[in-house]
Design a protein around this nucleic acid. Structure first.
Lengths: 193, 193
DNA sequence: ACTGATGTTAGTACCAACTACTAAATGAGG
DNA sequence: CCTCATTTAGTAGTTGGTACTAACATCAGT
């Protein structure tokens, strides 16, 4: 098989490197059947950094993503909050949140937004969901900006009742009634453990 | 300030490197006020790989985590399933799933396990959660192995009723009643869009 | 104070995977 | 055939290491 022309090779190179950042110049030169120098010239022209920089970049970026995905306290971004009263959050439906076949958001992400908003709105060290009554009124889709609103209806003793409504373009996609347990102790585990 | 003793230094080194894998031997040697060789001997004794290997590891591992966290079809691992009848899944509570202060699992992860199990148990191209009535009967904690069981109670027309119970060591931590909408069409969006 | 063991530092040769540069060889088109 | 673009070759220098040898420092026990 004949080797590629410059332009073609450079396009393929870009693709290769972005799908697999772990390829050395040597490996790439073998794949394209050109010399290492050619690969290096190509990278220079295309502004593709060297292997180690690519790996470093991936490592840094991914650690950030991890934090924003799994270690975040709240699903969605809180845009307004008055403790023990009400709160608003924004959640943008991205690729990882939807069913691939129809791009409809999985219900548990909408629930997560509502649930974590309830936790956030309560101004106590410990707030746990005790029960909830929820309804998905219409499907929300990839790219939707979901605005969730939590209203604290009642707080007495150790139980709060919060109603949540989530909307996309003013149209309701989710509503729920959450019963939260809260206390000023940081950890209930001591009692049970 | 006096320099640390070997043992102490090595413990701190381990901690440093695991919290920030991007530290070179040179930087570390400056931090501990010892020579580069000492740092290298320490790494050798503690089996800490060199900078580049650490970065590579982070880059690879994190990309995998991303996939398993955000792109997975089901939260938890399905361990038994009979379509349109019942299903079991296992979800292990990890660090990213809990409140840091008390190590109690966030409710929406337990909900996600139950919800995705309901989607999985229905043998139709499209299955969406319509509403749910849920209860968190006791907190589950870091390290818990949560076994979720979904039972299809009724299926008629386009609506299924599924009850889910989740247990840790036989003790119930979550129960819910899910109303699912299903159809044999892959995408309802065509009608609305 | 002397002896050993342990710990620390210095120094060398080598490696991968580069950058930056110069220079030569090879093509392909007019 | 000439020419310009492209490709290849080769050298020197860089970073962040490994692997190894040898010397030096420190302290503990006798």
């Amino acid at each position: 098989m004949a080797r590629y022309k410059k332009k073609e090779r450079q396009e393929l190179l870009l693709e290769k490197v972005s799908t697999d950042p772990f390829l050395t110049d040597e490996l790439l030169s073998e794949m394209f059947e050109v010399s290492i120098q050619t690969i290096r010239l190509d990278r220079l022209e295309l502004n593709i950094p060297e292997l180690r920089e690519r790996i470093k970049h991936v490592a840094r970026e991914e650690t950030e993503k991890i934090r924003s995905l799994s270690l975040q306290e709240v699903i969605g971004e809180i845009i307004d909050i008055e403790l023990n009263s009400h709160a608003l959050s924004l959640f943008i439906v991205e690729d990882g949140h939807v069913f691939q076949k129809n791009k409809i958001a999985r219900g548990h992400y909408l629930f997560a937004q509502a649930n974590s908003l309830c936790v956030a709105v309560i101004d106590e060290p410990l707030a746990l969901t005790k029960s909830a009554d929820i309804e998905f009124t219409r499907p929300s889709k990839l790219g939707d900006k979901v605005i969730s609103k939590a209203m604290v209806e009642k707080m007495d003793g150790h139980t709060a009742i919060i109603t949540v409504t989530s909307r996309v373009d003013q149209k309701m996609v989710f509503k729920g009634r959450f019963e939260m347990y809260y206390t000023d102790e940081t950890d209930e585990g001591e009692k049970n453990g």
